[in-house]
Design a protein around this nucleic acid. Structure first.
Lengths: 203, 203
DNA sequence: GTCTATATTTCGATAGAC
DNA sequence: GTCTATCGAAATATAGAC
């Protein structure tokens, strides 16, 4: 709290790094700007040079995950609903595995701060142009072109991924990530295999 | 705000009902005691007749879910680790399905307020004697008596349940709960079937 | 770009009357 | 058992110097 730093533009990234870590560990609401500033060796006021509001820090972190999730969903939504999209599910789930494994912290931020993030969205200042990812997924899973059985199984596959890598991830801490990922891939195959064959025999 | 009510002891339950609803909808941190009181037509101060601290309201709601979850885990932990416990997994998962379907709001409270609930635990005032449910589950899934494949599949089954009924539940809003539950049961069978046979051929 | 100092607001919690 | 009134703490945010 003594000396100025004149750190240049990478300070903004450092703020986001520290904020992500603290938001995941203690939660957005229980992390004060003072906590973030102290960890960085600057003062609360300095944060306001980079972010107008505390919410903007959360928002920027949210947008990074949102961008990644959007890529996955964009690709899926580009395929017409029906058999073609069914055939595209495995690739989507594979991307999901890779994305989730490679972005643990951002995923945890969302899983542990759901209400804070939802409050962001309903805030008119932070009007998010895009539809929420979860809502887009729900729409995809609501398709009337796809059998209920398959829709449920795709949902189950997603749940399998998140549970294995996050909620119960601690149980597999000493397993190689790739080995774990392969086991989850087997699960996904088991869940969708027969259904894909039944739904699109010619693909 | 105007008239006293002299409501008797059911007021405490009403407070918990309203709090649960608001905590789920807006999150624990963004729900003030004033919000709860106004919804009930009483004042903030009246709440303190029933609960010493705001945290105590959350704690009581938490304990209700904890009790239910403990029943399920107690039963599983009563079975010795190894083949016998493996054989007990399907019954545990079935209880989980029933419990989750029958206690939507309480489950949502936990899923949407993870960090607030974790803060409760580390608070010495609210020292929870029991180990956290998630930690107990992780321990069960960390068993060295069970193949990694099966451990992962049990985790996946749990994820399948939660994703279908909660995260992506909106996609199945117009499906009969029992039909949905049956589809999830099929998924669980597919996930564990071959593994159970391989692990405990004589059971 | 960071500081000190302070304004502003919100909220949990308490005191004491009825 | 509920109220009015108020306290005290904490946190976000701002003003202005350096």
């Amino acid at each position: 709290m003594a000396r100025p730093r004149t750190q240049g533009p990478q300070t903004r990234e450092k703020i986001l790094d520290v904020a992500l870590e603290l938001f995941v560990q203690y939660g957005y609401d229980k992390t004060s700007l003072r906590d973030i500033a102290e960890r960085l060796g600057i003062t609360k006021a300095a944060l306001y040079y980079y972010f107008e509001r505390k919410e903007d820090i959360l928002m920027e972190l949210h947008l990074r995950l949102h961008a990644m999730g959007s890529e996955v969903l964009d690709e899926l939504e580009a395929v017409p609903d029906g058999p073609a999209r069914i055939a595209a599910f495995p690739a989507m789930l594979e991307r999901l595995v890779v994305t989730m494994v490679g972005n643990r912290q951002l995923i945890l931020l969302h899983r542990r701060n759901q209400s804070a993030l939802e409050a962001l969205h309903s805030d008119e200042r932070n009007r998010v142009e895009n539809e929420d990812l979860q809502r887009r997924l729900v729409r995809i899973l609501s398709s009337e072109e796809i059998s209920l059985t398959l829709r449920v199984r795709v949902a189950c596959a997603i749940g399998a991924i998140t549970e294995t890598f996050f909620e119960s991830g601690d149980a597999f801490g000493d397993v190689e990530p790739e080995e774990l990922a392969d086991l989850v891939r087997d699960v996904i195959s088991d869940l969708l295999g027969s259904q894909l064959a039944a739904a699109a025999p010619r693909l």
